[in-house]
Amino acid sequence: MADLFLHQLVLPVAYILAIVVPLIVAVAMFVYWERKVIGWMHVRLGPTKIGPWGTLQAFADVFKLLFKEVILPAKANRFLYYLGPLIAVVPALAVWAVVPFDSRMVVSNANAGVLYLLAVNSIGVYGIIIAGWASNSRYALLGAMRSAAQVISYELATGFCLICVLILAGSLNITEIVNAQAGSKGFFEWFWLPLLPVFVIFFIAGVAETNRLPFDMAEGESEIVAGFHVEYSGSPFALFFLAEYANMILISFLSAIFFLGGWLSPVQGWVHLDAPGWINWLWTGGFVWILIKAFLMSFLFLWFRATFPRYRYDQIMRLGWKIFIPIAIAWLFVSGCMRYFDWVSVGVGA
């Protein structure tokens, strides 16, 4: 009985907390870091007042949002209105179950991890559609429609990119995909090199899927106010916010896992030193590497936002359907050849 209690209740809750609490803190600090970086790129300072160097700014914003009134529009569908943000946020958190942080540090080492990832991740868009529809507002509906069309078209490109990775790695298990990138040539063994165009497409499509600038048609402040969440306030809005930023962090982690070798060290196979464990990870790999890689990838999100103006709607569709998908399909063929004729070494000498 006690054993059942432990395995059915205590451990799952512990796993959930171990993922969600650091994730929420990471989202808060990411929001702070975003405002700071964009401020610097605008030759401003960004937040400086709350906490040392403004580090607690995001927490102040969160508590402000939680204490605010939740306003239900008069003609909104009450049930769906509150369901929307939940559907947006739950997949954004649930996806992390299959994300490996180290060779053994993963909640669920599922064999079909990539499938789970794609499936759960694509539920998130329903939250946006439901929220936009249930608000009973023109702007919200327009934002939801744009978002739906955009996310679905870019999911195709993302899917093709992942198929290229799967062909090379030969597995749907995410841990094995990372292990397939191990080798004696350091970061030249990682998939970004044989799959360079696919890597670029995957990341840009990821930016588009999270509705971030320059693809933020779903929000489009200057056109449709705030898009699908225009009618939301207080804690439901905070949930949308959390989902968006958790998805950004997820895309950063996925780029690191699928193309940048996950927790593998970039100098793996080059340095052979006998050192104590606390410094060993520098060349044998460890969860610090995946954090560093994901941090650098997530910096790109902020960098894009500070640099590029918003795409026009038809340009987004053209980019997704006429450029990304053909290139991804072409590279699907190339990676098939790479695999068939053994042009790349996969998972040798790990």
Partner: peptide, 24 residues
């Protein structure tokens, strides 16, 4: 090859390290 986009990103990252104009 995203030449112009990368050039734009080079501009923004250059500005990131410039002294800031903000007066507190």
């Amino acid at each position: 090859l995203l030449v112009e986009l990368l050039r734009g990103m080079a501009v923004t990252v250059r500005y990131m390290f410039k002294p800031k104009y903000t007066m507190r």
